[in-house]
Structure formats: C-alpha cells, structure tokens
Design a protein around this nucleic acid. Sequence first.
DNA 1: ATTTTAATGTGTCATAAGTACATATTTATT
DNA 2: AATAAATATGTACTTATGACACATTAAAAT
Lengths: 237, 237
Amino acid sequence: MAKSLQLKTAELEKISHLDYFNIALSVDLVIFGYEDKELKVLLIKSDLEEFSGMYSLLGDLVRPDEDLDSAPYRVLLSRTGMDDVFLEQVHTFGSIGRHPSGRVITTAYYALIDIRHHQLQVDSNELHWHAINDIKKLAFDHKLILNTCLEQLRSQIMEKPVAFNLMQDKFSLRELQEVYEAILDIKLDRRNFRKKIAVKDWLQDLNEMESNLSHRPGKLYGLKKQFKRKSSKVLAI
Amino acid sequence: MAKSLQLKTAELEKISHLDYFNIALSVDLVIFGYEDKELKVLLIKSDLEEFSGMYSLLGDLVRPDEDLDSAPYRVLLSRTGMDDVFLEQVHTFGSIGRHPSGRVITTAYYALIDIRHHQLQVDSNELHWHAINDIKKLAFDHKLILNTCLEQLRSQIMEKPVAFNLMQDKFSLRELQEVYEAILDIKLDRRNFRKKIAVKDWLQDLNEMESNLSHRPGKLYGLKKQFKRKSSKVLAI
DNA sequence: ATTTTAATGTGTCATAAGTACATATTTATT
DNA sequence: AATAAATATGTACTTATGACACATTAAAAT
C-alpha cells in the first residue's frame, strides 16, 4: 500500500520502507445533545471483542480523499443521517496502546445537536443517547476523549455563542439557563445569569411568548443572525 | 506495508485494502524563544523543491513505536539537541492538499525555550531563529500553523504560568513584563502588570537584586517550585 | 369571578477586578 | 554633589461578579 504513495522527498522515501505508514488515522466524535434538562452523548455499542458490551464514540478512519475536518461530517451524516451540525476539533490522541487492533491515532471532535430537529436516522439499533452523568466507562480511551471534549465545551459556552446549537430556534431565557446548567452541571442564579447573557448581546427578542404552559409564559428569544450559520446553526468563530 | 498491520476487526480489514493507510502522520513544532525583547521562532530551510528558499517549521513523521506526544520531544532533541522543553499540543491540520509530496496530516505543538540555557546543537546551518514579526510566509501551511500556535500561546499566558519557560530562572519584573509584551506585541502598564502578576501568586521573591546595571537594580524573582517541572521548566497543568 | 399555582421579570448592595495615571526612591555615573 | 535611568508604589474610576427578595402574569381550579 505504501508503495502507491507519490512520495518525492528523500526523507519520505527513506522512511517509507520502515513501516512508517503502519499508523492509521481516525476521527472520533463526542456528539452532545440536550433533552429533558440533561446533557447527553450519542454512543454506539463497540464492535470489538476486546470491548464487547461496552459503548464507544462514533468514529471512522479518515479517507485519503477527504480533508481531516470533513471526516467527522461524513461520519455524522452516514451513521446518523444528521446534516448541518456544529463541529469543533478538540485534541488528537495517539498513545501507542490506545487501540487494541493496531496503531490508530485519532482526532477528537465534539458536535452539538438539537435533538428535536435532528431525528436520528438510525442505521443500527446500537446507537443511543446517554445522559452524561450516567456514563461511567467507555471502550478504548473514549472516556478520556469525552472528558476532554466536555471540558472544552464548558470553557467555551460563556465565550462564544455555541450552546445555542443544542436548542431550537426559539427559546425562553429559562430554557437557555437550563441548557447552561446541564452543560456545567451546576445551578445558576436566574438574575445573574440573565445579566451575563444580556451583556453578550447574542440574543434577539422575538416579541413572542411561550404558549401552552400552565403558568406565566416567558418571552421568546432567538440567536442574532450574525452568529448563525446557514440553516440556523452557529458559526465557529 | 499495510499488510504487516495486526488488524483484527472486520472494519479495519475491510478498509485496509482501500489504501486507507496512504495517509502519513507528522508532527510540526512552533518553537518559541525570546531574545533581545523579541519573540522568535526556530525555522529551517525547506528541503522540498516546491518550497526552495522558503523556511518551514521543524517536523517529522510520527513513528509507529512512539506515542504521538513523544514525537515532538524526539524531534527537538534530535534536530536541536534541546531536552526538557515545555511542549503543548495545539491543533491537527489535515487538508488534502497541504503537503505537495502526498497526504500528510500533521499535529502541531508549540515549544517554549529559554534560548540562553538551551544552546542550539546545530545539526545544520539551516536552522535559525526568526523574529516573529519578520516572518511573512512559510512553506506548506506553516504560517497558518504558526498563527494558530501564537494565538494559543497568547491566550494562555495570563491563565497559566507558561511564559516563564522562555526565561532564565531568576528575573526582574521588568524582564517578565518585556516577555509578556513581546508575546502579546503590545505595551503594558507597569503598575497594572505587577498587580495582575501579584494576584496570580506564581512568583517567589528571591531576596536578590539585579547587578551590573547602570541604574537602580530591580529585585529578582523566580517561579514558585510548585509550578516547575524537573530541571526548572513549567508544568503543563 | 375569585383564588391558587407556578412561573416570569426585575434591582440593590458589597466585593473584586480592570484601567488610567504621577511621584518619590535607589543605584551607578559623572 | 548632581545627574541619569531605572525601580517601587497608590488612588480614583469604572466595570464585573455574586448574593439575595418581591411584585407580576397567565392559566387552571374552585
């Protein structure tokens, strides 16, 4: 296989016969969703005998004819049917022993999904949403990858308008606060939370109210246009 | 080459004959140093004909028998003789066309070097320090990699005690401020800078003074032990 | 119609952090 | 003894953070 590479430099030639291409490169996805006031992650039953019965992240080898950053979009689309999703690269994991089947280095991404808009086109009944606090161990080093991505998500939500990718287009401030509380896993003070969000100037007052509630409805807001991607998802600024 | 892999899963077997291993993985290093009140980067003349005359970052392919995070240490030691260096992984770059010789995905690291302590064991006279503001273009996508690493460095120096890796063990507050100014490329107010640093509680007053100056000497400080690595470099917390 | 329920919407005070800015002090040099 | 060139330090203003309580609204129940 390595012979089919079009290598030109002395360095690459010299190295190729030393089995340098025995390293495979994959992407792994921490797919976050939000439902029932909980942050969830989409997991699949591992198909490796070493990890039978355990769950793992969705992932795949990177193809030679796609950009690294395109691979996670392809995986998402092909494995879940979800398109137009917010994705961010987090870290690359490459310990020697991390994959039992061989040398695989993996670049981890996190995705943010509005579960209510992106229905799972389940290609297997082994795909399930798991509440983040219920995930105790995962196959491979995927728990480490999950923790790393969760930390990155937590550190970004007050800096950039990314949490909105977990929500529908219209939401009340209560709903927004609940999303933040689910991500951070702490209770927030309502007045202080609203003050902080107001300062960011991310929100558009839609002049609409919640409905079908058995109590006083809240105002509805949307993310300002300048922070949205096509089809209403948020830019990775 | 790919045949020599010990692949066990159906998925990997299926994929291996599709030339999936035609992707090579490398590491590239943005090696920062500080001298003459300037932030510098260690560059080497590119050995590719496509980029003849241009400079590039130090890098190498990752070997199958080393952890990904070990590769940059090996590169640093073998190419410059420098040991015990602060390194941090930043981002992985994997566009299809980024390397003219074939498909190479690269994980970028930045290193922080105290130039005065780590004399270059130059293995080639093509290795040179370049002031960061003088670097206009680089081979491959290395200017993008440099910019990404510089941004990460800038965003970390007020959060974590990493800038000290660019300095000698004993320093005055003026010298420290000059390092921060070089990294951020802005002038800082002396009083406010000292207040901010004091709050961090990173510094140990050494009860020594500068000497051999033609003006009033400043007090000397060192980084507190708890933030140091062996041989006086800073932990990546 | 009135009351109850369950939520929304809002302000103040105290503390901490950020920013702009000027003067007295110390050492070596002349 | 005077000069040069730097160090060391404080205050006033503004902005951000965190703790905390009460009046209001809409729907549902009576």
